[in-house]
């Protein structure tokens, strides 16, 4: 007995050891199953995308990719594809993504403020308002193809019938209105997201602070701008980042509503552009290059979000 003690003393007790990792192994086994799926199905394709982005490869015309260095990148940024990529795709992406996020934020904020005043009816409104969130992009794409149809669609018919014929338009099929139409369609589905989060934030506001401002005689507008909004801003920033990230990933509705990128490629935002390059033109090398651009944008936003929200 004593001998054992001495041995264990001599072996471990002497050197001050650093063993802050005793649970490493068990914990790793909790993560391992996820890794077993994620590595082949995400990590490997991601690595492949990087590799592909340096290849010249049309999937239909040639069986094997050929290395062409940074030419794909060069083409998009300076070469013969740059007019399209920098002149159309990126501006369309920026307008769509920022436009939709901004519209949804403003509507969501306004509606949350209004709903917060109606304690009783709020529940019914919320239920009705949130339903579109559950619809698939494909359904929405077809549904709005039907609604926006210029001559016989219900939207234009209603506008004409109610004396607002001036407002009737070609919606998604006209160059001038294609982008706003896409933004409105997205807002129809996703404004509830902003609304719900902002409303939850409003309900969690420290009441005494808001009430103190009221007692201090601040007007409703002043209270909203100087007290409520600043208190909500952390939540709003997180919600906007979530929404932006989703919008960069957005294309299902567009794929249906704007079957070939919309009039004048108005809705060929970066993700849709990559899909068309790969799926319609079979330029897998170029599609991969666009994918890398998209990956960089979304990763920057995602890591900023995770840091900012202290999620990791």
């Amino acid at each position: 007995m004593d001998k054992q003690v001495l041995q264990s003393n001599g072996k471990k007790g002497e050197q001050g050891k650093k063993s802050g990792r005793r649970f490493e192994l068990p914990f790793f086994f909790f993560i391992l199953p996820s890794l077993l799926i994620i590595i082949p199905i995400v990590a490997f394709p991601t690595a492949w995308v990087f590799w592909l982005s340096f290849q010249n490869w049309n999937f239909l015309s040639s069986a094997t990719p050929t290395f062409n260095g940074v030419n794909n990148y060069g083409d998009f940024l300076f070469g013969y594809n740059s007019a399209e990529f920098l002149g159309k795709i990126l501006p369309a992406t920026a307008s769509f993504v920022i436009g939709a996020a901004a519209l949804e934020f403003l509507l969501g904020l306004g509606l949350a403020y209004l709903a917060d005043m109606h304690l009783k009816g709020e529940k019914y409104f919320r239920t009705a308002f949130v339903i579109p969130v559950f619809m698939s992009g494909i359904s929405i794409g077809f549904l709005y193809t039907y609604i926006y149809e210029p001559s016989n669609g219900i939207l234009n018919q209603t506008l004409r019938g109610s004396g607002l014929g001036l407002l009737a338009s070609n919606w998604h099929t006209a160059l001038s209105s294609a982008l706003p139409t896409a933004i409105i369609t997205d807002a129809w589905q996703w404004t509830p997201f902003m609304f719900l989060i902002i409303l939850a934030g409003m309900k969690a506001l420290p009441r005494p602070v808001v009430e103190a401002a009221e007692v201090d005689g601040a007007t409703a507008l002043y209270r909203f701008r100087r007290v409520i909004l600043p208190l909500l801003s952390p939540i709003i920033i997180i919600a906007l980042l979530f929404r932006l990230l989703d919008l960069f990933n957005y294309l299902t509705v567009l794929y249906i509503l704007y079957p070939s990128g919309g009039p004048g490629q108005a809705l060929e935002i970066i993700s849709y552009f990559a899909l068309l390059l790969g799926n319609r033109s079979f330029y897998l090398g170029q599609a991969a290059t666009i994918a890398v651009f998209l990956l960089i944008i979304t990763n920057v936003l995602a890591f900023y979000l995770i840091r900012r929200g202290k999620f990791a």
Binding site: M1, Q4, V5, S8, N9, K12, G13, K17, S19, R22, F23
Partner: peptide, 9 residues
């Protein structure tokens, strides 16, 4: 009880 448990779970 004189047994080193420092590394014992």
């Amino acid at each position: 009880d004189e047994m080193d448990v420092t590394d014992l779970p």
